[in-house]
């Protein structure tokens, strides 16, 4: 028995079938082909599956797909404006804030949620915002620097 679920994915209306108890992560990856959110632990501890639901960061590996019905879902795939990367993406590239890249999509989405509601965060607020996202390779310092750098670039743009 499958059910239908529909929501907005990165600004586009989408619909998919989902099995009972299928997670949003599974629907995004396997039904809709957006593989940018990653399955790192499937138990809500690593943050690699982080996406935004109506602007709030959520763990898509724990969230049932039904919960997204009629709502707005954002992933890192939708962050760039055509060929123009988001300042967070640019800053992650400039600051060497990714090594293997597996945590990066979730990390950037957690950072975006922060900057959307707090455009001028302190270092402590950045650390708090990514405290649910595990990075095993680069260490957190370049990631924190990249998020602060992105905030500065966004401020300069305004």
């Amino acid at each position: 028995m499958v059910t239908a679920v529909s929501f907005t994915l990165n600004g586009t209306a989408v619909a998919a079938v989902a099995e009972p108890a299928e997670t949003l992560l599974s629907v995004l990856r396997h039904r809709l082909g957006d593989t940018s959110p990653k399955a790192g632990c499937l138990q809500g501890t690593c943050g690699a599956c982080t996406v935004l639901l109506d602007g709030e960061p959520v763990l898509s590996c724990l969230l049932l797909a039904d919960a997204a019905e009629g709502r707005r879902v954002e992933t890192v795939r939708g962050l760039a404006d055509g060929p123009t990367l988001h300042p967070l993406q640019e800053a992650f590239m400039d600051r060497f804030a990714a090594q293997c890249g597996f945590c990066t999509p979730g990390m950037i989405m957690a950072a975006k949620a922060l900057l959307d509601r707090n455009p001028n965060p302190t270092r402590e607020e950045v650390i708090e915002a990514i405290s649910g996202n595990v990075c095993r390779c680069t260490g957190y310092l370049p990631i924190i620097e990249a998020i602060l750098e992105a905030a500065r670039r966004l401020a300069a743009r305004r």
Binding site: V76, R77, L85, L88, F92, A98, G101, T104
Partner: peptide
């Protein structure tokens, strides 16, 4: 790194 930050 561009693939990493764009999720591609």
């Amino acid at each position: 790194i561009e693939g990493h930050v764009t999720g591609r």
